[in-house]
Amino acid sequence: MFVLQILITSLVTGTQVLLLAAGLYLIYTVTRTIHIALGASTMAGAYAYYLAFTLGWPWYGCLFAGILFSALLGAVCYLLLRNYIHKSQVLLALLVSIAFGVAIEAALAMGFGPEGRYLMDGILPTFDFWGVHITQVGVFTLFVGLIAGIAAYIVLHMLPQGRVVRAIAQHPQCASLLGIKERKVQFISYVVAGVVAGIVGILTGLNSAITPYAGLQPIAMAFMALLVGGLTDFRGVVVAAYLLVLIPEFLVSGSFGDITFSASWKLVFVFVIALIILAFKPNGVFSSVTRKS
């Protein structure tokens, strides 16, 4: 029962990390940039939901406000980064993204204060089966993850829009020569990643309290999943996201003689695991070797 509970908890957290990693992967594939500000966008989306909630809006209005605000931040971020993206100055784009993320977090802290905020009143509804507990939000997270996964597969592999994204990922210059509007696709990628970040932020906020600086930890985990899984194959990212959540969860929940670890050790374990793997497999565990001409 204990093991099953850990598996269920890890599955929910892993899905949230995976959704964020998917947004990062999409941006990285299309623009080759590392978009750190996505973490701050998750919290910005959650705070927009919170603001609408305190104004007495219905839940769908709050949801729309949260997602719209995150998408808007994604669009603003692209406008800030586009010059560096087009000049292939990816590290400068990373620095601007970090600064933009800090600006969003500081603005949220100025507006709402550093204390935790809740996106719903009352007790969190839970489902119990075979002695295992899962919150309603947890079930919804798994459902969203599943739907997003199926939708992403259909779009990328069966629709012309997906072929455009894959073409830009493979050869941007060649795609431009064929009349594909690269900038438009990049802009849409940032907006889509913003939408995903908004959904993740709201799901996180429905499960626990939100603070302005809470977005950095999930985005760091998502990035490590991306690096450990390998930036060339999304299947690797899926496996890495769940493993990087599951292994620390087991280590924190178990006891090793007199040694026990508190929940705050999780990120330390994630970092150490990622560090060890990357020291031996710098391109990620599931990356494939490609020849460079």
Binding site: L94, Q217, F223, M224, F271, A274
Partner: peptide, 10 residues
């Protein structure tokens, strides 16, 4: 760069 950033949080 990402590992450097993550090391701060770790």
């Amino acid at each position: 760069a990402v590992l450097g950033l993550a090391s701060m949080l770790a």
